[in-house]
Design a protein around this nucleic acid. Structure first.
Length: 419
DNA sequence: TCTGGGGTCCTAGGACCC
DNA sequence: TCTGGGGTCCTAGGACCC
């Protein structure tokens, strides 16, 4: 029988910041979303101050007790690289590692000899020694149980970061007291609907009539019930799945009110998504553009719309700018203060496919795109970019407290001085 | 003034075809 | 004028995740 483990990095983005600045060690640290909008990671010290996930930063930054909080704009190149390092360490201990998100990885613990608790403790200390990132590990007979075990390990300090749910009786004891909201896959919409038919604890969920669960949650719910009983339905996949879609979307640093600025912004998104496409050697046959005004301020008129089109598969930035600009014209309305927009690509496939009997397979990445990618890789993002993406760009998102990309940019590496 | 970005899966319903 | 069943594909919308 496979034993599934889940390792999760504690307050990952904050831990990454702390890893490169010893002065932060015992201080409350908060990392903000893009546009410095809201808190998306808090160190344990910051959690103790009462800062919640998703708190709008502009509403909490002025509170007195927050004077000592160190806050950062999010720095994804740094976090992605730290995640890769954690992955590297894990592969020393188990050959089967499935990255689930930037800070979580599923492990196949079946082959490990001796006490699993001891082995997992070794893995935790090794990850912390090499990367400076603290973690928790939970394990059990299915991914859903491993996920729950991980939550318990994090929630109860007395467990010292480890939780074993392989034993039926131990599992049932937790199921009796834990609410269904702790199940992986049961979110805020489903909780009240399940509550209304008398399902409140995980124990009640597992024992509930599958037909009733199916009615509320479709097949996903029935599968979850089986997983929680220890019948594994979700396999560990070591190969990353083929990507289904790809997007670039942003909130603006200030509202956009004129078409030409929005056209620049949307062209910028087109450049960004096609850059990702070329990096993964894909092309896209379906393109969507959306725009919207601030969802939190509907009083003076709210507008949101999207348009999409099926096109000859492409990965070319200039072609994509043409497509998204045409789509934007169909949904643009004067007189609104737009706060957010984006470009979404679908129908992805390895580039070079034949789109129809009469079209030739479109040409491989053009020399221009290759040159642009090479320059931007060597000299930094946006060293060269199409003029259609704008020059002034005063609507760009805020990033007031960006830390250096310590591990991926030579020019931003930590300096050590000795006297 | 200021509230993120990027994904996945599932289902229902419409268009179209034979 | 009446009148069917079954299949595929696509899209929109709803739910979830980190």
């Amino acid at each position: 029988m496979t034993i599934y483990g889940l390792i999760d990095c504690n307050a990952f983005y904050c831990s990454c910041q702390k890893a490169f600045d010893a002065r932060l060690k015992r201080l409350p640290v908060v990392v903000l979303s893009n546009n410095d909008g809201c808190a998306i990671a808090r160190s344990s010290e910051a959690k103790h101050l009462g800062i919640k996930m998703g708190d709008p930063w502009h509403l909490i930054r002025d509170q007195k007790k927050l004077g000592e909080v160190k806050w950062f704009s999010s720095n994804y190149p740094l976090y992605a690289d730290m995640s890769r390092r954690v992955y590297q360490v894990l592969t020393e201990y188990t050959p089967k590692v499935e990255p689930y998100s930037i800070d979580e990885m599923f492990l196949d613990l079946s082959g490990l000899s001796g006490s699993l608790s001891e082995r997992c403790e070794t893995i935790r200390s090794r990850v912390e020694q090499i990367t400076k990132i603290p973690t928790c590990i939970g394990w059990g007979a299915s991914k859903t149980i491993a996920k729950l075990a991980n939550y318990i390990a994090k929630d109860r300090p007395e467990l010292e970061g480890l939780c074993d749910l392989t034993d039926d009786r131990v599992r049932e004891r937790y199921y009796r007291n834990l609410p269904i909201s702790e199940i992986w896959g049961v979110g805020r919409r489903l909780v009240p609907r399940l509550n209304s038919v008398g399902i409140r604890t995980i124990e009640q969920f597992v024992k509930a009539d599958p037909a009733q669960v199916r009615q509320i949650m479709t097949m996903t719910g029935v599968r979850l019930q089986a997983e929680l009983r220890g019948v594994s339905c979700l396999e560990l996949s070591e190969m990353a799945d083929v990507r289904k879609g790809l997007a670039s979307t942003r909130s603006f640093g200030r509202p956009i009110t004129c078409f030409s600025e929005m056209a620049e912004a949307v062209a910028g998104f087109a450049v960004r998504v096609t850059e990702k496409l070329r990096a993964e050697k894909l092309d896209a046959g379906h393109v969507s553009v959306f725009v919207q005004t601030n969802i939190h301020q509907r009083s003076n008129g709210w507008y949101a719309n999207q348009a999409s089109i099926t096109c000859a598969p492409t990965q070319d930035a200039l072609t994509m700018i043409g497509i998204v600009t045409r789509l934007l014209r169909t949904i643009w309305r004067d007189g609104y203060r737009y706060s957010k927009a984006g470009v979404q690509l679908n129908d992805l496939a390895p580039c070079g496919r034949q789109s129809s009997l009469f079209d030739k397979p479109h040409e491989q990445t053009s020399a221009l795109m290759t040159a642009m990618d090479t320059l931007n890789r060597r000299y930094g993002r946006e060293t060269v970019r199409p003029a259609a993406t704008g020059v002034v760009r005063s609507w760009r998102p805020r990033q007031d407290m960006l830390s250096p990309r310590y591990t991926t940019e030579l020019s931003e590496i930590t300096e050590v001085r000795s006297f």
